[in-house]
Design a protein around this nucleic acid. Structure first.
Ligand SMILES: [Mn+2]
Ligand SMILES: [Mn+2]
Ligand SMILES: [Mn+2]
Ligand SMILES: [Mn+2]
Lengths: 141, 141
DNA sequence: CGAATCTTGTAGCCAAGGCTACATTTCGCA
DNA sequence: TGCGAAATGTAGCCTTGGCTACAAGATTCG
């Protein structure tokens, strides 16, 4: 049997790690959006916008709190910690870049938004840099 | 409260659906690769290449069988059904296109391979078409 | 001010996808 | 040929992320 290619394993492992973080990232981004819009993020609103039942959102927020990304008290809104805010900023920026890249290579706007919601979580910092450079060079075409 | 944007919900729902299919797609592709190389795909080899413990691979293969994508008998190799083969072809082609697109916008080869392993599962057919068109136009530059 | 309504919490179910430990079958080779 | 090693199966545990049903707190309004 041929030797197993370690870089391929790396790809699968990375993909699994990133998939596990994807949900956290979307919640953090959503909480940031709602806080900007309403001054706080309510569980019901988070759940509605993510398209899940409210206990699902409650559980996810519990995980965010456990990981130090958010805080909340019973029957009150959810807020991001500084760590959470930093993550939200990063995630939002990456989201924008991914959508822009997709648009730049000819993906229709609506499709780009939908696909980016999944793709974004698998874009590494190296790839993000490449996207930014590509967009910059195209801007100054 | 402002009305919840339904297209955003659509994005999150699609991302979740695609994430759920990602594993199946990687297993099917791997089984196709191993079958091409050795004439059959053994559980141990599948597990080794995906970087998981063998019972994890066994469970995943059970799911493939349940969904009509593969067949196998105890202590023997795993084989794809026609449906499984068709999926494998499609997945492999998409993988290649995603890597090529990443390379084309300046992502280093090794990084492209790793990131593509996750990104590929979130690329819709519309986006794939756009990627192909972009690559074709660039080829005939 | 109190009752209805809205929001949030909690309990408990399920499937998927990881794992380790151990049992069983197959296979290769002395 | 038979025995030890390798491969595979099975049991059982954990976490995540869905869900419904129901309990309880908070708000709104007549
Ligand atoms: Mn997302
Ligand atoms: Mn996003
Ligand atoms: Mn993949
Ligand atoms: Mn792939």
């Amino acid at each position: 049997m041929t030797d197993t290619d370690p870089s391929q394993i790396k790809g699968f492992n990375r993909a699994r790690e990133r998939a596990a973080r994807a949900l956290l990232e979307d919640y953090v981004e959503m909480i940031a959006d709602l806080t900007a819009e309403f001054g706080e993020a309510r569980i019901t609103e988070i759940a509605a916008r993510l398209g899940v039942a409210h206990p699902t959102a409650t559980k996810a927020v519990a995980r965010l709190k456990r990981e130090g990304l958010a805080v909340s008290r019973p029957y009150r809104g959810v807020f991001l910690t500084e760590t959470g805010e930093a993550l939200a900023d990063q995630v939002r920026e990456r989201h924008r870049t991914v959508v822009a890249l997709l648009r730049a290579v000819g993906v229709p706007e609506e499709v780009a938004e939908i696909d980016a919601e999944g793709i974004e979580h698998h874009v590494s910092s190296r790839t993000l840099e490449a996207f930014e450079a590509f967009l910059a060079s195209k801007a100054g075409k």
